[in-house]
Amino acid sequence: MRPTGYYIGEAAEPWRVFTDAGYAVDVASVAGGTPPEDGRNEDDATQRAFLNDPHIAAQLRNTPSLAEVSPDDYDVVFFVGGHGTMWDFPTSPDVARVGRAVYEAGGVVAAVCHGPAALVTITLANGQPLVAGKRVTSFTNSEEAAVGLTHVVPFLLADALTDKGATHIPGPDFTENVVADGRLVTGQNPQSATGVARAALSAR
Protein backbone atom coordinates (compact mmCIF):
# COMPACT_ATOMS: atom_id res chain seq x y z
CA MET A 1 0.00 0.00 0.00
CA ARG A 2 1.06 3.61 -0.56
CA PRO A 3 -0.49 6.93 0.37
CA THR A 4 -2.30 8.91 -2.29
CA GLY A 5 -4.29 12.11 -2.65
CA TYR A 6 -4.39 15.01 -5.13
CA TYR A 7 -1.66 15.92 -7.60
CA ILE A 8 -0.41 19.44 -6.92
CA GLY A 9 0.43 20.29 -10.52
CA GLU A 10 -3.17 19.68 -11.55
CA ALA A 11 -4.27 22.28 -9.00
CA ALA A 12 -1.44 24.76 -9.48
CA GLU A 13 -1.64 25.13 -13.25
CA PRO A 14 -5.39 25.87 -13.33
CA TRP A 15 -4.94 28.22 -10.36
CA ARG A 16 -2.42 30.19 -12.41
CA VAL A 17 -4.74 30.38 -15.43
CA PHE A 18 -7.76 31.45 -13.37
CA THR A 19 -5.93 34.01 -11.24
CA ASP A 20 -4.20 35.49 -14.28
CA ALA A 21 -7.69 35.94 -15.77
CA GLY A 22 -8.85 37.80 -12.67
CA TYR A 23 -10.79 35.04 -10.94
CA ALA A 24 -10.65 34.32 -7.22
CA VAL A 25 -9.80 30.67 -6.51
CA ASP A 26 -10.80 28.71 -3.42
CA VAL A 27 -9.81 25.16 -2.58
CA ALA A 28 -11.90 22.57 -0.78
CA SER A 29 -11.63 18.85 -0.14
CA VAL A 30 -14.02 16.00 0.47
CA ALA A 31 -13.15 15.57 4.14
CA GLY A 32 -11.81 19.03 4.98
CA GLY A 33 -8.55 19.70 6.76
CA THR A 34 -5.17 19.29 5.07
CA PRO A 35 -5.69 17.32 1.86
CA PRO A 36 -3.26 14.44 1.22
CA GLU A 37 -0.92 14.74 -1.73
CA ASP A 38 -0.24 12.39 -4.62
CA GLY A 39 2.90 14.06 -5.87
CA ARG A 40 4.54 17.41 -6.47
CA ASN A 41 7.49 18.78 -8.43
CA GLU A 42 9.70 20.86 -6.16
CA ASP A 43 11.43 22.41 -9.20
CA ASP A 44 8.20 23.63 -10.80
CA ALA A 45 7.80 27.40 -10.40
CA THR A 46 4.00 27.32 -10.77
CA GLN A 47 3.62 24.67 -8.09
CA ARG A 48 5.87 26.65 -5.74
CA ALA A 49 3.88 29.82 -6.40
CA PHE A 50 0.62 27.98 -5.72
CA LEU A 51 1.80 26.48 -2.45
CA ASN A 52 3.30 29.80 -1.29
CA ASP A 53 0.36 32.00 -2.23
CA PRO A 54 -0.94 33.31 1.13
CA HIS A 55 -4.62 32.68 0.34
CA ILE A 56 -4.02 29.17 -0.99
CA ALA A 57 -1.51 28.25 1.72
CA ALA A 58 -3.96 29.24 4.44
CA GLN A 59 -6.74 27.21 2.85
CA LEU A 60 -4.54 24.15 2.31
CA ARG A 61 -3.70 24.09 6.00
CA ASN A 62 -7.38 23.59 6.77
CA THR A 63 -9.58 23.28 3.69
CA PRO A 64 -13.34 23.52 4.08
CA SER A 65 -15.10 20.27 3.36
CA LEU A 66 -17.32 20.18 0.31
CA ALA A 67 -20.26 19.82 2.68
CA GLU A 68 -19.56 23.41 3.75
CA VAL A 69 -19.35 24.78 0.21
CA SER A 70 -22.21 26.76 -1.30
CA PRO A 71 -22.13 26.16 -5.06
CA ASP A 72 -24.06 29.39 -5.60
CA ASP A 73 -20.81 31.24 -4.93
CA TYR A 74 -18.93 29.77 -7.91
CA ASP A 75 -18.92 30.05 -11.69
CA VAL A 76 -16.59 27.06 -12.21
CA VAL A 77 -15.94 23.90 -10.24
CA PHE A 78 -12.65 22.22 -11.14
CA PHE A 79 -12.08 18.64 -9.99
CA VAL A 80 -8.35 18.08 -9.64
CA GLY A 81 -6.90 14.61 -10.17
CA GLY A 82 -4.52 12.38 -8.32
CA HIS A 83 -5.22 8.72 -7.69
CA GLY A 84 -6.89 9.47 -4.36
CA THR A 85 -9.88 10.90 -6.17
CA MET A 86 -10.75 7.44 -7.49
CA TRP A 87 -11.82 6.43 -3.99
CA ASP A 88 -13.01 9.76 -2.61
CA PHE A 89 -14.99 11.43 -5.40
CA PRO A 90 -17.48 8.71 -6.40
CA THR A 91 -18.43 8.06 -2.77
CA SER A 92 -19.03 11.70 -1.84
CA PRO A 93 -22.60 13.00 -2.06
CA ASP A 94 -21.24 16.55 -1.86
CA VAL A 95 -19.10 16.08 -4.97
CA ALA A 96 -22.30 15.19 -6.81
CA ARG A 97 -24.24 18.01 -5.14
CA VAL A 98 -21.75 20.76 -5.95
CA GLY A 99 -21.11 19.57 -9.50
CA ARG A 100 -24.79 19.32 -10.32
CA ALA A 101 -25.65 22.71 -8.77
CA VAL A 102 -22.87 24.59 -10.57
CA TYR A 103 -23.76 23.00 -13.90
CA GLU A 104 -27.51 23.52 -13.62
CA ALA A 105 -26.98 27.15 -12.63
CA GLY A 106 -25.15 27.75 -15.92
CA GLY A 107 -21.63 27.29 -14.61
CA VAL A 108 -18.77 25.16 -15.88
CA VAL A 109 -17.79 21.74 -14.58
CA ALA A 110 -14.16 20.91 -15.35
CA ALA A 111 -11.99 17.96 -14.38
CA VAL A 112 -8.55 16.64 -15.26
CA CYS A 113 -6.77 13.27 -15.19
CA HIS A 114 -8.46 11.25 -12.41
CA GLY A 115 -10.61 14.24 -11.48
CA PRO A 116 -13.36 13.02 -13.84
CA ALA A 117 -14.03 10.35 -11.21
CA ALA A 118 -16.28 13.09 -9.84
CA LEU A 119 -18.42 12.89 -12.96
CA VAL A 120 -19.29 9.23 -12.50
CA THR A 121 -21.96 9.99 -9.89
CA ILE A 122 -23.21 13.45 -10.91
CA THR A 123 -26.84 13.14 -11.96
CA LEU A 124 -28.90 16.07 -13.23
CA ALA A 125 -32.42 17.04 -12.16
CA ASN A 126 -33.86 15.08 -15.09
CA GLY A 127 -32.33 11.90 -13.69
CA GLN A 128 -29.70 11.59 -16.40
CA PRO A 129 -25.97 11.35 -15.68
CA LEU A 130 -24.19 14.61 -16.43
CA VAL A 131 -21.89 12.84 -18.88
CA ALA A 132 -24.64 10.99 -20.78
CA GLY A 133 -24.38 11.83 -24.47
CA LYS A 134 -21.32 14.03 -23.87
CA ARG A 135 -17.77 13.84 -25.19
CA VAL A 136 -15.24 13.51 -22.38
CA THR A 137 -11.72 12.36 -21.66
CA SER A 138 -9.82 11.22 -18.59
CA PHE A 139 -6.76 9.21 -17.58
CA THR A 140 -6.92 6.31 -20.02
CA ASN A 141 -6.76 2.57 -19.50
CA SER A 142 -3.45 2.61 -21.36
CA GLU A 143 -1.99 5.25 -19.05
CA GLU A 144 -3.22 3.36 -15.98
CA ALA A 145 -1.43 0.27 -17.26
CA ALA A 146 1.71 2.30 -17.96
CA VAL A 147 1.92 3.44 -14.32
CA GLY A 148 1.23 -0.09 -13.09
CA LEU A 149 -2.00 0.65 -11.23
CA THR A 150 -4.64 -1.09 -13.33
CA HIS A 151 -5.28 -3.62 -10.57
CA VAL A 152 -4.95 -1.13 -7.72
CA VAL A 153 -7.58 1.46 -8.62
CA PRO A 154 -11.17 0.50 -7.73
CA PHE A 155 -12.29 0.82 -11.36
CA LEU A 156 -11.00 1.99 -14.72
CA LEU A 157 -12.14 5.57 -15.13
CA ALA A 158 -12.52 5.61 -18.90
CA ASP A 159 -14.74 2.52 -18.73
CA ALA A 160 -16.87 3.97 -15.93
CA LEU A 161 -17.52 7.17 -17.89
CA THR A 162 -18.45 5.14 -20.97
CA ASP A 163 -20.82 3.04 -18.85
CA LYS A 164 -22.58 6.29 -17.87
CA GLY A 165 -23.28 7.10 -21.51
CA ALA A 166 -20.28 9.30 -22.32
CA THR A 167 -18.17 9.07 -25.43
CA HIS A 168 -14.61 8.80 -24.13
CA ILE A 169 -12.03 10.47 -26.40
CA PRO A 170 -8.51 9.19 -25.64
CA GLY A 171 -5.33 10.80 -26.91
CA PRO A 172 -1.80 9.41 -27.00
CA ASP A 173 -0.44 8.49 -23.59
CA PHE A 174 0.83 11.39 -21.48
CA THR A 175 0.23 14.10 -24.07
CA GLU A 176 -2.16 17.02 -23.77
CA ASN A 177 -5.75 16.18 -24.63
CA VAL A 178 -8.62 18.50 -23.71
CA VAL A 179 -12.25 17.81 -24.62
CA ALA A 180 -14.92 20.50 -24.22
CA ASP A 181 -18.58 19.66 -24.68
CA GLY A 182 -20.48 22.83 -23.89
CA ARG A 183 -19.97 23.63 -20.20
CA LEU A 184 -18.35 20.28 -19.44
CA VAL A 185 -14.57 20.35 -19.89
CA THR A 186 -12.25 17.43 -19.27
CA GLY A 187 -8.55 16.69 -19.66
CA GLN A 188 -6.74 13.40 -19.97
CA ASN A 189 -3.67 13.71 -17.76
CA PRO A 190 -1.41 16.15 -15.88
CA GLN A 191 -0.18 17.51 -19.20
CA SER A 192 -3.74 18.73 -19.87
CA ALA A 193 -4.29 20.78 -16.70
CA THR A 194 -3.50 24.20 -18.15
CA GLY A 195 -5.53 23.49 -21.28
CA VAL A 196 -8.57 22.44 -19.28
CA ALA A 197 -8.50 25.68 -17.31
CA ARG A 198 -8.24 27.74 -20.48
CA ALA A 199 -11.09 25.81 -22.08
CA ALA A 200 -13.19 26.27 -18.93
CA LEU A 201 -12.77 30.03 -19.21
CA SER A 202 -13.80 29.87 -22.87
CA ALA A 203 -16.90 27.89 -21.92
CA ARG A 204 -18.11 30.60 -19.54
Results as ranks from 00 to 15, higher is better:
A132K: 15
D173N: 10
N52K: 11
T63W: 12
K134R: 15
L66D: 09
N62C: 08
G32F: 12
P71R: 07
E144W: 02
D53V: 07
E68G: 12
D173F: 01
G127N: 08
T167Q: 13
R204V: 05
P129I: 03
G99K: 06
D159E: 06
Q128V: 10
R183W: 03
G22D: 09
G33T: 12
R100P: 05
R204G: 02
A49E: 15
L51Y: 08
T19S: 12
R48T: 14
G5Y: 04
L156K: 01
N189R: 05
L156Y: 00
T34V: 12
N62P: 05
R2I: 14
I169L: 04
Y7E: 09
R48E: 13
R100Y: 00
T4H: 14
V120F: 00
P14R: 11
T46A: 15
G39V: 11
Q59C: 05
V179W: 00
R16C: 09
G99C: 10
G106H: 01
G195I: 08
V120N: 01
A58H: 15
I56F: 01
H168E: 07
T150V: 13
A166H: 09
G84S: 13
P71Q: 09
P170D: 04
A117N: 04
Y6S: 01
G84V: 04
D88F: 04
S202H: 13
T194S: 14
H114L: 02
V112C: 02
S202A: 15
V17Q: 12
P129F: 02
P36H: 11
S65P: 13
L201V: 10
R16N: 15
G22Q: 08
L66K: 11
M1K: 13
A199D: 11
H168W: 05
D181V: 09
V120E: 00
P116M: 03
N126S: 14
A200C: 08
R16F: 09
L66A: 11
A96K: 08
V196R: 00
D20A: 15
A111R: 00
Y6M: 03
T194E: 15
R16I: 07
G32I: 07
A101I: 03
V95T: 05
A12H: 13
H168I: 05
K164G: 04
T186V: 03
G106V: 01
L201R: 08
R48Y: 04
A45E: 15
F78E: 06
N126R: 08
F79A: 01
G22T: 07
E13G: 04
Y6E: 01
Y103A: 11
V95M: 01
A193H: 10
A12N: 12
P172Y: 06
